[in-house]
């Protein structure tokens, strides 16, 4: 354990040297290769101990000490937190590429697209070339992907989210993790996260039922606003996939639609029901479409929901005049 802490400390120092020190101008391909070995070692420490509170605590403490020392040596250096360890090679790479002292021979090695396999540093030679190839290939193919899908990126993120949740469930930290991810999302990122949640809920592997449950419960019970955002951000086809896949989601979705309707007010000026609370506001027409799609997907639901709407209409006075009860107007729109 002590040696692991010592190694961790030296690896973080190595990261700082790679990013900030002029000493890298002495590096050769073997130094580069071993730096990446140490970075991989840190990634390994993370995956091994991130669920072990005792070890993790000790490592976090060690990191704090090391960061303190490094702040003094390299004033501009960024701190390395425990979660950062999971992407240590990436940190190393960014540090190196931004270090103006990095020898051009190392740059060439990293960007060499046809490095010989026996050069002794197989893993690092051509590393950047491979990254660029991969990113470029994604861009080249993305216009071809069918427009109806959520997108390969959201699907991959959803899959990764499921994996992560699966690892966290046994330690009861899944909800905490979801909260922290959500806290970090604002604006477009929050909307993107909704797509990822949907994609996660639609992943199909046997082992992920528990993760699905946790995610769904978190979404439905603790995150009403995220649920609403998901319902308004997703394409209808995706929403219907979720409705078909998860009964709990279906019911929650129905409630969201009723909530949206209940928040509508009739604007006499526009002659239209308007809703200003959700962002973006759902129009009366959009709301009708949601109900229609839901009925089409689950015909059995139609009677129940219409009964509910009718009861609400009656409680509003049961007038058949447009603009008096949103429920009445919805029903007549749905019966058209």
């Amino acid at each position: 354990m002590e040696s692991a802490l010592r190694n961790l400390s030296s690896s973080v120092e190595l990261l700082a040297v790679a990013a900030h020190s002029g000493a890298v101008d002495q590096w050769d391909d073997h130094s580069l290769s071993s730096a990446f070995d140490w970075a991989r070692y840190c990634e390994h420490l993370f995956s091994r101990f991130h669920n072990n509170p005792a070890v993790r605590g000790a490592m976090e403490e060690q990191l704090q000490l090391t960061n303190g020392r490094l702040r003094a040596a390299f004033p501009g250096s960024t701190e390395v937190s425990f979660p950062d360890l999971s992407r240590c090679q990436h940190h190393l790479l960014i540090g190196l590429l931004n270090n103006p002292k990095l020898p051009i021979s190392i740059m060439k090695l990293l960007f060499d697209s046809n490095a010989p396999a026996d050069s002794g540093c197989v893993d690092v030679s051509g590393l950047c070339s491979r990254i660029i190839q991969c990113k470029s290939a994604c861009k080249v193919l993305s216009p071809l992907t069918p427009p109806s899908a959520v997108g390969a990126d959201a699907e991959v993120q959803g899959g990764l989210l499921m994996e992560r949740l699966g690892a966290l469930i046994t330690h009861g930290r899944a909800e905490h993790f979801l909260d922290s991810v959500l806290r970090g999302c604002e604006g477009a990122a929050a909307e993107h996260f909704c797509l990822v949640i949907a994609a996660a809920l639609l992943t199909r592997t046997n082992s992920e039922t528990a993760s699905h449950e946790v995610l769904l419960d978190w979404l439905l019970k603790e995150q009403p606003s995220t649920l609403e955002r998901t319902c308004s951000a997703l394409p209808t086809a995706r929403l219907m996939d979720l409705v078909k896949e998860h009964l709990k989601f279906r019911d929650a979705y129905r409630d969201v639609l009723k909530k949206w309707a209940s928040e509508m007010e009739y604007s006499i000026g526009d002659g239209e029901w308007v809703q200003s609370r959700t962002n973006p506001p759902a129009s009366f027409q959009k709301l009708t479409e949601h109900f229609q799609a839901l009925f089409e997907t689950c015909p059995s639901l139609r009677d129940d929901v219409e009964k509910e709407l009718n009861a609400l209409k009656i409680s509003d006075g049961d007038f058949d005049v447009r603009g008096l009860s949103v429920w009445g107007d919805l029903l007549s729109e749905l019966h058209k």
């Binding site: 991130h50 999971s86 390969a152 699907e155 993120q157 899959g159």
Partner: peptide
């Protein structure tokens, strides 16, 4: 994609692996 990058950072997924997965998926 800043949103994706943020999420991957939270989830501790290195960009290289992430892009590889997206490409494979596409």
């Amino acid at each position: 994609d800043a949103a994706a990058e943020k999420l991957m950072k939270r989830m501790g997924v290195p960009p290289k692996e992430y892009h590889l997965k997206v490409l494979t998926k596409m």
